[in-house]
Nucleic acid binder design. Structure first.
Lengths: 231, 231
DNA sequence: GATTTTCTTGACCAAATGGTCAAGTCTGGA
DNA sequence: TCCAGACTTGACCATTTGGTCAAGAAAATC
């Protein structure tokens, strides 16, 4: 999926048939891999690839460092695995909400709501993603240039259809997506700054509600999308 | 300015009177400090504080590592100095463009244009800023909670005045600023992603022009700000 | 219950890291 | 010309880093 995630087998010793993703077989492995991935996500999201140490990740995961290296041979491989898990989620919301037959105002509203919910519920993937891209995105370049690009092209066609149908004011649909990503993810990536400006310790529900509403109103008014009033 | 930038003197050996910011005295020092700061900004912006090595910064600056440590005793101190230089620029545009007597459409347009120009001309400060805030913003917390918060409060009052005068649709002015920052800075921070999606090697003038126009139209239409047509 | 496979972990290593130091060179003023 | 202070730099050091290893514990398989 990524550049060169797992050169050889995923770990030094691997269950013969990796296929059974559930069931009792490999339960220990799965549990530990999950613990490590979660810890890694958090540490990478805070310090980036270079700044994170496998020792810290292992400590956070509650396993000895040697055990971490039993499941993930190198830091690179661990990093790639973490990114890989994030990428899937990334595309999901976009793909599901932006559909030709949908009402633009509703679709955009829903998409914004989902992205905001993600920023609130689990900001760390967004932060790790940001750090990776800021650093040049070497590890995700293939993903960006293939899957993401393809999906964006598909979705911009949908948006162009909406514009052609007179449902939206003319806008560059690709940049429109950039803007939605930027606005929604800023509540995850820049949470520290937002909290500081608002004189809060952390972002609460009210902040996310106001944020959602602000984005929605800018986008929908900005595009002249008439919202169907529903009770 | 920052948390604890320069505990003692700025460097081990300092010119007696640090006041003369120009003139031939201390010319060597100034030249070298500048070289190092520039290199540091670039490396920190790519790898964050933990990931950057003083050796790499020194190499990039073209000085031996020991020389770097002559001007900046610790990596911390160097990092603080780099951030310090960035902070000043950060506030400038906001302060200058958002003024009570200004026409809202023009003021917002100009502000967006300046932020976009900054993202294009020198993306690295924006990236370093982002990495720092994503990491929790420990080093800039005092700045965020004091100077930035104060300025934001002042400027949101201006925007509220515009709204009260019926020049803008109602909007949460603080979040409006968050949105403008997010949208304009995404062209610096996420340049790699944008370039990949657009199938370009790097962002050219056209991309920034389209981006500016997209932001402007979303904000101005979104807020119902009537633009005075000028020739 | 025996045997094979997976998992666990303390001890270890080479490389890289931030930072120091002392011995030098350069520069500007008296 | 001399000299004090500013600057330069190779060599060095303690610590941290990613990663290995071997010996054993625990599970799974038969």
């Amino acid at each position: 999926m990524l550049g060169k995630p797992t050169r050889k087998p995923a770990a030094r010793n691997q269950v013969a048939s990796d296929g059974n993703a559930n069931g009792p077989a490999g339960a220990i492995r799965r549990r530990n891999v999950e613990k490590i991935l979660k810890a890694a996500e958090s540490v990478f999201a805070k310090k980036g690839f270079a700044g994170a140490s496998t020792a810290e990740i292992a400590r956070k995961a509650g396993v000895p460092k040697a055990n971490l290296h039993y499941y993930f041979r190198t830091k690179q491989e661990l990093y790639a695995s973490v990114l890989d898990a994030i990428l899937e989620v990334w595309l999901d919301a976009l793909d599901q909400e932006i559909q030709p037959e949908a009402d633009p105002a509703t679709a955009l509203s829903n998409y914004i709501a989902r992205k905001m919910a993600a920023s609130q519920r689990s900001p760390e993937p967004s932060r790790l993603w940001a750090i990776e891209v800021i650093g040049g995105g070497r590890h995700v370049q293939p993903f960006l240039r293939n899957r993401l690009r393809r999906l964006v092209k598909e979705k911009t066609t949908v948006i162009e259809g909406w514009i052609a149908a007179g449902k939206l004011k003319p806008v560059n649909p690709t940049h429109l997506l950039f803007m939605i990503w930027a606005m929604t993810q800023t509540y995850a990536d820049f949470a520290a700054q937002i909290a500081a400006v608002l004189d809060k310790k952390s972002l609460d529900d009210a902040v996310f509600a106001t944020g959602s509403e602000t984005i929605r109103s800018l986008i929908l008014n900005g595009l002249g999308a008439r919202q169907k009033i529903r009770l």
